[in-house]
Amino acid sequence: MLAVFVNCVAVVLGSLLGLLVAGRMSRKMEDVIQTGAGFITLILGMQMAFKYQNVCFLTLAIILGGIIGTIIDLDAKILSLGKLLARLVPQKNSESCPEKGDGETALSSNRNFAYAFLNASVLFCVGAMAILGSFKAGIEKDYSIIFTKSILDGFMAISFTAAMGIGTAFSAIAIFLYQGALTLLSVAVQPYVSDVMLAELTGSGGVLICMIGINLIGLKKIKTANYLPAVVFTVLFVLLESPVRNLLGI
Rank of each mutant, 00 (worst) to 15 (best):
164 M>L: 14
164 M>K: 08
213 G>N: 09
145 I>G: 01
146 I>L: 13
202 T>L: 03
141 K>D: 12
143 Y>F: 10
145 I>E: 06
171 S>C: 11
205 G>M: 06
187 V>I: 13
184 L>S: 12
168 T>F: 04
207 V>M: 05
139 I>F: 03
176 F>Q: 02
190 Q>E: 06
170 F>V: 15
186 S>T: 03
157 A>Q: 07
134 S>T: 06
142 D>H: 03
180 G>Y: 03
141 K>V: 07
194 S>A: 11
205 G>C: 04
162 A>R: 14
167 G>A: 02
192 Y>G: 14
143 Y>D: 07
211 M>Y: 12
146 I>P: 01
181 A>H: 06
175 I>W: 05
176 F>E: 01
182 L>E: 01
137 A>K: 11
144 S>C: 04
170 F>N: 11
194 S>G: 15
191 P>H: 03
181 A>D: 08
160 F>S: 15
149 K>I: 00
181 A>L: 13
188 A>I: 15
172 A>H: 11
150 S>H: 07
213 G>Q: 05
146 I>Q: 05
172 A>V: 12
195 D>N: 14
145 I>V: 12
185 L>G: 02
213 G>A: 07
147 F>M: 09
204 S>Y: 00
138 G>S: 02
182 L>T: 03
138 G>V: 00
174 A>C: 13
177 L>I: 15
189 V>Y: 05
188 A>H: 13
160 F>K: 14
164 M>F: 09
189 V>R: 04
157 A>W: 02
